[in-house]
Computed example of a mutant assay.
Amino acid sequence: MGSTGGDSGGRSVGARDRDEEGRARNARPRDGLGRPLPYGAPGVERQPEGVVRAPEESVAEAQALLDAGKPFHAHEVFEDAWKSGPEEERALWRGLAQLAVGLTHAARGNVTGGARLLRRGAAAVQEWAADGGEARPYGMDLDGLARWARGLAQDVELTGAAADARGSAPRLR
């Protein structure tokens, strides 16, 4: 009898991709919206994870990725800031990551999930500012980002159409 697992790109059936430390990590290539592609397919370069950046660098890098239509990758930058930044800023960076993931889902055509995450991120960044954070940390316009997110959530729900990741990208500053 032959293999029961089909073609897995030369990997044994049931094998998991692992990083250098042995943690499970999907090594499949990804498209610009972070969707996994088949092994061996050309993909976009993945955003490195666990990079510690100055907050201003995080904002600039995330904006460049958003402008390029790569909100999934911008989310990775925000997630790094959330995990490595000071405790008092973690809710801010988590909210920004939710905004980027919301745009990712909306661009993938997941209207319900995208709208939900956009609204959750909007609430998080506004709550962070209301709880004693700045309304414009690192030059970011949190009120403007919250308005953008709620507007995009409403648009995708009304039209049922996927968002254009590049054309719908927010201006962080």
Rank of each mutant, 00 (worst) to 15 (best):
residue 116 R to K: 12
residue 95 G to K: 03
residue 87 E to P: 08
residue 91 A to C: 06
residue 67 D to H: 11
residue 100 A to Q: 03
residue 148 W to R: 04
residue 105 H to S: 00
residue 63 Q to A: 08
residue 138 Y to L: 12
residue 119 R to D: 06
residue 112 T to N: 00
residue 119 R to P: 01
residue 106 A to L: 04
residue 132 G to D: 07
residue 120 R to F: 03
residue 143 D to V: 13
residue 75 H to M: 08
residue 66 L to Y: 09
residue 113 G to Q: 05
residue 93 W to M: 10
residue 108 R to P: 00
residue 98 Q to C: 01
residue 78 F to M: 14
residue 74 A to M: 12
residue 96 L to H: 11
residue 75 H to L: 09
residue 77 V to K: 07
residue 61 E to A: 13
residue 84 S to A: 15
residue 61 E to I: 10
residue 72 F to V: 02
residue 83 K to C: 07
residue 83 K to L: 15
residue 68 A to M: 10
residue 132 G to E: 08
residue 106 A to Q: 04
residue 129 A to P: 05
residue 122 A to Q: 03
residue 98 Q to H: 07
residue 100 A to M: 04
residue 142 L to S: 13
residue 89 E to D: 11
residue 137 P to D: 05
residue 87 E to V: 14
residue 70 K to N: 09
residue 91 A to G: 15
residue 82 W to F: 13
residue 114 G to P: 03
residue 83 K to E: 15
residue 95 G to F: 03
residue 137 P to Q: 05
residue 75 H to Y: 11
residue 93 W to Y: 14
residue 84 S to N: 14
residue 82 W to V: 04
residue 92 L to M: 12
residue 123 A to K: 07
residue 74 A to T: 12
residue 121 G to V: 00
residue 111 V to N: 00
residue 95 G to S: 09
residue 81 A to G: 09
residue 78 F to D: 07
residue 139 G to R: 09
residue 127 E to V: 01
residue 76 E to M: 13
residue 115 A to D: 02
residue 137 P to N: 06
residue 107 A to V: 04
residue 121 G to I: 00
residue 130 A to H: 12
residue 104 T to A: 01
residue 77 V to S: 06
residue 69 G to A: 10
residue 93 W to L: 08
residue 86 P to L: 14
residue 92 L to N: 14
residue 147 R to M: 06
residue 127 E to W: 02
residue 104 T to R: 02
residue 126 Q to N: 13
residue 127 E to G: 11
residue 89 E to N: 09
residue 100 A to T: 03
residue 131 D to K: 15
residue 146 A to P: 06
residue 98 Q to A: 03
residue 73 H to W: 13
residue 107 A to C: 09
residue 82 W to C: 06
residue 76 E to P: 05
residue 114 G to E: 03
residue 61 E to L: 15
residue 96 L to Y: 12
residue 111 V to F: 01
residue 125 V to T: 05
residue 145 L to V: 10
residue 62 A to H: 14
residue 107 A to F: 07
residue 76 E to G: 06
residue 126 Q to M: 11
residue 119 R to W: 05
residue 104 T to D: 07
residue 127 E to Q: 10
residue 127 E to D: 12
residue 124 A to Y: 07
residue 81 A to K: 11
residue 97 A to T: 12
residue 79 E to V: 10
residue 148 W to Q: 02
residue 139 G to H: 10
residue 104 T to M: 05
residue 109 G to D: 01
residue 107 A to D: 05
residue 110 N to W: 03
residue 87 E to T: 13
residue 139 G to C: 05
residue 103 L to D: 03
residue 97 A to S: 15
